[in-house]
Each structure stands twice: as structure tokens, then as C-alpha cells.
Amino acid sequence: MSEWAAKRFWKEASVTEADTGYGIALDGRPVKTPAKAALVVPTRALAQSIAAEWNAVAERIDPRVMPMTRSANAAIDKVAHQHAEVADMLAAYGETDLLCHRAIAPQELVLRQSEEWDPLLDWADSFLNARLMQTPGVIPADQDSVALERLRARVHAQDNFALTALHDLVSLSGSLIIGLAAQNGAYAPDMLWQTSRLDEAWQAELWGADDEAEQMAAIKRAAFLHAHEFFCLVSENSS
């Protein structure tokens, strides 16, 4: 049974227990991913959130308003089969992390970057034992190989569901450190998102906001916050 049937055909979506976690059933029939794998997730909390999305369907299934289901599908159908490749891609952000590339002028922007980004680099140093170095502009920094390897090990150690969340947290923010800070609860997720948008906010203050850019930023912010929520549900103890 494909979960992407055009119209609602079930009365109730419910959570079921499985050998490796929790599944979702539609009138007792298990939901499968688009690739026909069992939609089984690691925590009851996530399964309940996915079931709520299915129960909220009115007439037609719209994946755009079922973000937990989409992320779970991605973890099972994609990340599970490309874990090493995805982890390598995300770990590589440490070599060119957004937080390391600093403006050289004007002084107000330099100070603002220092105020908002230095604490995150300090957190990575103390909590992750990985100090990344700053560099002017877009010039690549010669980062410490030991620090990069420690970050890489943390990324590779994540399971498929956590890595799915980290993918969006990092790719949307442009920062591996921001992604890991979000996962570890170092700062509020919305604050981390705003921190990743520091340069764009600066430009908007100077030249005014662009409506199209603001709309796109709002979409990305929602996706970032969803990725954090997905990770929190994945990380909750099953009960």
C-alpha cells in the first residue's frame, strides 16, 4: 500500500508497536514509505506526530502539510541507504563553516559577527572539543585536522533519523556548528536561525528588505524549525 494515495480512504490513523520501533496504521493496515518500506520510527512521540498528520487529512493527501511523514520517509528511503555519503557531506561544512568567514568592514558588521558568532565557536571548542579558526571573507581557513575529525566522528555517529534532521539544520544555516548546537540544545532554535541570517539582516537594514527574499527566508526558517522539532521527537525516550 502506498501512503501517497490521492484520496483519504481510512477512518483512523493509529500508532502500533514494531520490533524496531513504532509504526503507523490506517484502519489497522501499516503505512509504507514511497519506496515500499515499513514506516517505522524510533520513538512513540514521533509516531504519534505522524499519525496526527494522517488523521488531519481532509480529503486528499498533501505531503506539503505532512512534514513529519516526509522527514521519516527521507530517513528510511534515502539516508538509511546513503548514511556515509550524507555524513561526509555534512562534516565537510566544518571546513568552510559560515561562522568562520568574517567581514573585514564595516566595523559595525565586524563587531556584530563577533558578538553573535564567537560564542558559538567557543561552545564548539568547549562542548565538542573542536576549535574552528576564523578567516577573512571567503578565503578558506586552514582548519585543524583534529578538530575536523572530531566533528566528523560526531556526525557519522548519528543514526538515520538524527542525521536526517542534521542535514536540514546544517544545509539551511550553512553551518555545521549551528546544526550541532541546535541538536544539543545549546541555544534556542529560532535564535540560531536568526544568527545564521546575520549577514542578510545586515544587508536588509542597509538597503531595505526584498519581499521575495523575505518570503524565501520564511520558508527556510520554517524548515529549520521543523528539522529541530523532528530531532527532538526522534530523541525522546519511547514510552
Rank of each mutant, 00 (worst) to 15 (best):
E3H: 12
A13I: 02
W123G: 05
L148N: 09
A51I: 01
L198M: 07
A188Q: 12
S173A: 10
D211I: 03
F230E: 07
V15P: 00
A186S: 05
I24K: 14
R154M: 14
A80F: 03
S114G: 11
D190S: 04
T43N: 12
C100H: 02
I24R: 13
A13H: 06
L172Y: 12
L163I: 11
D159T: 02
A25E: 11
R221C: 09
V79C: 05
Q134Y: 04
V170L: 08
T135D: 10
R112G: 06
L111R: 13
V155G: 09
R8G: 02
F230A: 06
K36I: 13
Q215A: 02
P63C: 06
L132R: 06
E85W: 03
A204P: 01
E200R: 11
P42I: 05
I61D: 09
S145T: 05
D168T: 12
V15A: 08
Y93K: 00
Q48R: 13
V57Y: 05
N184W: 07
V40S: 08
L121Y: 00
D27S: 14
L26V: 04
E95F: 03
E205L: 04
A227R: 03
V86M: 11
R60E: 15
S49R: 14
A153D: 07
V31T: 15
V15G: 05
H167L: 15
L148Q: 09
P119D: 00
P106A: 09
Q113C: 04
E212C: 00
E108V: 15
G174Y: 07
E59V: 15
A153Y: 04
S14Q: 08
N237G: 12
P63Q: 04
E59W: 15
P34W: 10
A103N: 04
R8I: 02
Q183S: 06
W4S: 12
N160V: 12
P140D: 06
R131E: 01
Y93D: 04
S239G: 05
G179N: 07
